[in-house]
């Protein structure tokens, strides 16, 4: 009723918001890479580890997949300084998201491990492949192909999840949108543009991942 849509003023902030989107991408990418490594360790522990390692990995996964990510980051943000560890909000968010991703990616990667076909492993063995050659030529290419889609999905989810960094004052896309909002009071316009930017960021990421996936895994693996 009383609200007249006017994008003009908000458009001036586009570069500022784009900078925020870039930071969101960075957080998502770094946390994803960290989570991938943690998840790999977790998946190894759960698949090949002894009972103690398995239990540790399990506890880690259960804890991080059954508590809200926000609470996890709050914990890092407020509890660690008490222990003498001071974290900037950026680092706290990054660590929190990495630990959270590690738990989910442990489960995803473990499923990939267990999808390796026993029959192929037997063929590899009887052809005389060493353990290492089996990993290199059979296990890794297979797992990479199986894991690519769910990992891509999780990456997109994480990109969106970065918006909670705003709560801790990190100036990523949502953080900057809040700033613009409190300066212009053009809430509808600001969050429309912010939404569009998130869509662009995820669509571009999906497209890149899709092309990369096809290039890597339609051509699958070439030996000759």
């Amino acid at each position: 009723m009383g609200y007249a849509i006017n994008f003009g003023q908000v458009f001036e902030y586009l570069p500022y918001l784009a900078g925020g989107a870039w930071l969101s991408l960075q957080i998502a990418f770094l946390a994803f890479c960290g989570g991938l490594v943690l998840g790999l360790l977790g998946a190894f522990a759960k698949t090949f580890g002894g009972p103690i390692l398995r239990r540790i990995a399990n506890a880690y996964v259960v804890f991080f997949t059954n508590t809200p990510q926000l609470v996890q980051i709050y914990f890092l943000f407020f509890a660690l300084p008490e222990a003498g560890i001071l974290l900037s909000s950026y680092v706290a968010v990054l660590i929190g998201m990495t630990l959270n991703a590690g738990a989910y990616l442990t489960e995803i990667q473990r499923a990939g491990f267990s999808s390796v076909r026993q029959t192929e492993m037997e063929a590899a063995e009887t052809l005389g492949m060493s353990r290492w050659q089996q990993v290199r030529y059979v296990i890794v290419p297979h797992i990479a192909r199986v894991l690519f889609p769910p990992l891509s999905n999780h990456y997109i989810l994480m990109t969106l999840g970065t918006s909670m960094a705003a709560i801790f004052g990190v100036e990523e896309l949502t953080g900057r949108a809040l700033n613009v909002n409190s300066e212009t009071f053009r809430s509808i316009e600001v969050f429309t543009i912010t939404g569009v930017m998130y869509i662009l960021v995820t669509l571009v990421a999906s497209a890149i991942l899709g092309v990369a996936g096809r290039a890597l895994f339609r051509a699958k693996m070439r030996i000759v």
Partner: peptide, 19 residues
Amino acid sequence: NLFQNMTALDNVTIAPIKI
């Protein structure tokens, strides 16, 4: 028990070449 991630030719050549 063929290797699903390799072409027919790669399936045949992998052991002689790599092993």
